[in-house]
Amino acid sequence: MKPGIWQRIGFYAIVIVIVTQAVFPFYYAILTSLEDGQALFEVNYLPKALNLTNYRAMLAEGVFGKQMLNSVFVASVVVVVSLFLAVTAAFALSRIRFRGRGLLLLTVLSVSMFPQIAVLSGLFEVIRFFGLFNSLWSLVFSYMIFTLPFTVWVLTTFMRNLPVEIEEAAIMDGASSLTIIRRVFLPLMWPAMVTTGLLAFIHAWNEFLFALTFTSTDSQRTVPVAIALVSGRSEFEIPWGNIMAASVIVTLPLVALVLIFQRRIVSGLTAGAVKG
């Protein structure tokens, strides 16, 4: 029995609504970023101008370039450090039987439920103690609180499902655990590591509360904080064109990543939740 014509029309109508609502705000941000002067204050639904003034203004302002680099630096280092810590930990949690393993995993996982605000004042003290205030390292350090539990969890479940035989041969040959991780597991773990690495990158790239609190000068800000703090002298002088240009610049890399690695991201997002 074929679905009737009205049913098909209804279905595609829903599809069109879903796609439009998802894409329109970003489309409109691009549209606005390409307008300048008076054009900005007319509501247009279709692109009218192709004016790169806003982009030039943002990039000519040296500090925005520096802030982009800050974001790239923080997110990349966070990915590398958390993957390193998580792979070694996941090896122990998945391949070695010892008492308290389940409780330990539960504790690690429960950290991901921590509201960031609950550790804010304590972390502020720790960061000042280490002299990291207003340094990018304070962000690399504090972001571990949300990247580590997730990466450890996903990598542990992934490693647990690899067959025992693959490391038995290596143990028989007398290889050390570190060699086993490097030679046996790493080559097999690329898919899981790409997925968790991507999610950690996106999370670190988007983070706001810590970045707002632990940095205090323009040159140390990451882009989300910079965008949030752009303001005009009055409500009527907010440079919306520049804000939209900056927004498009920070979002494009993410949208590209998501479109390229769609399947991996979806599997990573659901791995954390459904397998629990």
Partner: peptide, 25 residues
């Protein structure tokens, strides 16, 4: 596939950016 990709876009946009985009809208 295209629809799924489109649906993912709001998720990929940083919260701050989406707040600013909507503030303008």
């Amino acid at each position: 596939g295209l629809v799924r990709a489109a649906v993912l876009i709001p998720w990929a946009i940083p919260t701050i950016v989406s707040a600013k985009m909507w503030a303008w809208m």
